[in-house]
Each structure stands twice: as C-alpha cells, then as structure tokens.
Design a binder for these strands. Structure first.
Lengths: 249, 249
DNA sequence: GCAAAAGTGTTGGGCCTACACCCATGA
DNA sequence: TCATGGGTGTAGGCCCAACACTTTTGC
C-alpha cells in the first residue's frame, strides 16, 4: 500500500490520506494463491495497493490497480472493509525499512485504506510489479510470508469475507478457466474453505444448483482416469446470484 | 451527512473529503424505525452523519456520532460499505437547497462516505438534532420520506447488510429491551425481514438455539392473554456469534 | 498389471415447513 | 361474554451427511 504520492500518479490530483489495498486471489496447483509485491531492494512483502484519484470512483481505482498488476480488466471485485484505526501499524519502523525507496518525509501522518478482494483466473494473469517493487508473485495461501503494514489483518478479513460469500452464493466463475473438471472445482472450494469436502455430496449439490453444465469432452493427457469437463452456465449462475440462493457446502 | 467543516468540529483537524453516515435502527410499535435529521428551516431529511478527526479511528467517529444523536454509548455497530462514486448526487442542487445553512463555497468538491449501521434500544434513545438540523426523529421504515444526497442508496444497502447478518447470526440483543416477549422478538424479525413468520416455528428455533431463557414472569397489563417474558442468555449468545452458527428464519 | 485419481447411490436422521385450535386476559 | 392475541404439537418431506467400491488411464 502506497501511502505517499507515487511516481505513477505524480501530477494527478489524489484524495489525501485515502488508499486502497487489493487481495487478489487465484487458484492453481490445487491451492489458493495470493498476489504479493516485494519492495525494491528488500525482502519485504505487501499487498498491491494504490491511491485514489479525484476523478475516479473507488471501484474504478480498484479496477485500475488490478489491471496494472495482473493485466486483467474483467474482474470479480468486492469491497469488503475500510481500515481506519489511528495507528494501523508501526509507522516509524516502516519508514526506516523503506527509507531507500520512499523519502520518510513523504508519508502521510495517517492513511485510511479501503480493502478490495478480487478473484481471477490464474492462467490469464501476467503479474507486473509497480515502481516501488521489484517482484510481483503468486504466493500459496498457506506459505504467505510476514507482510508489511497491517496487511496480515487485511488479508485475514478478506479471506473471512470470501468464505462468507462462498457460503451463500455461487463463486468460482472467475477463479476457474473456461473449462474445468469437477475435482478442480471441488479443490477450489476446499482451498478457500480450508477443509475437505465429500466428492459425491459436492457433485450432487453443484449439479442440482444448475450453475454448471457437463460437456461431451473429457480432459485427456492426465494420468489415471480422464475426468469430464464442465463449464459454467452463465445465465443460471446469474439467476442463482440474484435469488441469493443459499449454497452451503 | 456533513461534507463541510461543521461548527462542532471547528478548529479540530479533520480527515479531508472523508465523512461517515449512520443508519440507526430501532424497534417500536412492531415496526422497524430509523433515526433521521431535518435540516434547519427546511423540510429536507437525511441520515445522521459526521466527519472524522485526525485523532480518532473510524469506529470511534461512528460511536461519537451515535452518542451525539442518541445519548447511547454502548451500541451495536457495523461498518457495512464505503460509498465513493465521483458524483454521488447532484451537488449543485444540494448546495442551493441548503445555502441558508451552509455556505456553498465550503462544500468539498467530492466526499467519500463510510457507512455504519447501528441497532439500538428504542426506549433508551433521546434523539438529539445537530447544529445543522432542527429535528431528530424516528421514522417508520415503510414511511421514510425522500432523503437528501445518496442516502436512499445508503439506507438500502444498510438494510440488505442487516438482513444478511440476521440470516446467519443472532441479532436483537441490542434492539430489544432487557425483558421482552416472544411475540416482540418475532415481530422484530418480521420488521427487519419484511415478511411474516410462523410463530410456532420461530419459537422452536429460537429456544433450540439457546440464546434466550424464559423467565418466571409474564407481562401484565396488556389486553388478552399475558405473554411470558424472556431475556437473552448473553454467554450463549456470544457463543453462537463466534460459532457463526447458522440461523435462518 | 499396477498405482492413482475419477466417478457414482443409498440410507438415516435431523431440520424445516405447514398447519389449527384452545386459553387467558382486559374491556 | 366477547374480542384479541398468546401459546402450543405433529407429521411429511427435503436436504444433508456419512460412507466404499468400481472404473479408467498412463506408466
């Protein structure tokens, strides 16, 4: 999270003391992944973030940040919380650690940050560092390093919100590729919820809801039995979303 | 929602362009009520709101606003959304309508507002207008007048969030008085959800959850059969909250 | 042929829904 | 005594959870 005027926004009018942070979720290798930035010349990691211009809405700012970091612009995005404690973290320590990147005098005395999370198709993302970082990398949820600022708290809350949303809405259209297998989808749910699911019950439930349709193809080239492919039925998916159709797994 | 430096905060350092709006829910006469302010010398209504001081957290600011309007300081409070479109409403029109109260030159060109909702015990509230309004009054949810700014949208979203929360958590400890009857509680649920509930099923469900205990008293002085009184079992209530115990009605 | 993952059905229990009549009280 | 709202039980269905073996494929 940038809490200073960054190079990319130089000369543009910004909303003072207001920033945003994005928790970008992807799914790969049967694990939930999160996109993190490594600060230049350090081994310090944080969530991607940005500032808000006077001429863009909060949602537009979040979309811009996501586009910059991932190359994707059609994105599932949710604002989940605004973080506004007076002392969100130890600023002095951060200023020292990042003094070689940002002049300590440029930090706001206080910043409020709006938290967004996004679900993206891992395969379509081209991670792209910003001017203050020299790496933008996917991290497995269970291997996340220590994060700067209050980003562990933000991540925690994003994950809780995602799990809640998953509990009463279909999710996944944005996390999975166009065609996917039922075990893929199930492992996505397992990764998000952090628990094992019974494959028979899962399949019944998903098929009953009608949000996916079975294709007349199987996935070839994988070892063992070839799994069927499915795709989302977008119309039905939207319907279930609108109904607020309960959807506990 | 104040979008200018108001008298009450004169001389205090504020976070620029950031405000907060509160949807304060109460329950009375079997109806869900909302606290609204009438702007001085007008018949224009809006939600109570305020600004955020540099030395207070967002939550503290919300608590301060609630305390000022209701006199209550132990309050059930939820941050539910941050509203940040570039043009949240027709500013020119608002500036004209309120020109006699606020110098049009003092308005921010744009303000972002953090939405909170609160559940309070109607009986304990002493509604108290702020410096810019001459009335602070409860309104029945189904009789709400047109609201200024984008406050109808904010109210709408607050209600959706409240209903969602009601669906998977116990609620009501803060809306009902110390002792209440089962029909009271049921009508509170009906008022929030906007639909009829079967009294037998409701009672079973609530008693099963263990969040209330039956007292050895009945409510006297009401016409017709005397209903039993109940009170919340706070310990069990907190437990169910933590479990995230599902709680659909 | 063997190892690994995919695919698939049934049963029991609990929970939710639907539904109607009697009772106590104040007026 | 009457009108009004409070209090209460049961039966059916649906959904959910638990559970294990066969099939297919690549190696």
């Amino acid at each position: 999270m940038l809490e200073t005027t960054s190079k990319e926004s130089e000369g543009l009018e910004l909303i003072p003391q207001l920033t945003l942070d994005c928790v970008i979720f992807g799914f790969h290798d049967n694990a939930l992944k999160i996109l993190l930035l490594k600060w230049k010349g350090t081994d310090l990691w944080s969530l991607p973030g940005g500032v808000i211009r006077q001429d863009e809405s909060l949602d537009e700012a979040a979309i811009r940040v996501l586009k910059e970091r991932t190359g994707i612009d059609k994105i599932f995005l949710r604002q989940f919380h605004t973080f506004g404690k007076v002392q969100r973290y130890d600023k002095t320590s951060i200023q020292e650690q990042l003094a070689h990147v940002i002049d300590p005098k440029l930090w706001y005395k206080r910043a409020i940050s709006i938290g967004y999370y996004a679900l993206v198709d891992y395969e379509e993302v081209f991670p792209n560092p910003d001017q203050l970082s020299d790496e933008c990398t996917w991290w497995d949820l269970v291997e996340i390093p220590k994060l700067l600022f209050d980003h562990e708290e933000i991540l925690e809350k994003a994950l809780r919100s995602l799990r809640l949303e998953l509990s009463f809405q279909p999710i996944g259209l944005n996390l999975l590729p166009e065609k996917f297998t039922m075990p893929d989808m199930m492992r996505m749910y397992e990764a998000i919820l952090g628990k094992k699911i019974d494959p028979r019950n899962f399949q019944k439930k998903i098929l009953n809801s009608g949000i996916v349709v079975k294709l007349k193809e199987v996935k070839r080239g994988v070892a063992h039995k070839s799994p069927f492919l499915y795709k989302f039925d977008r119309k039905r998916y939207e319907e279930v979303l609108k109904e607020g159709g309960l959807f506990f797994i």
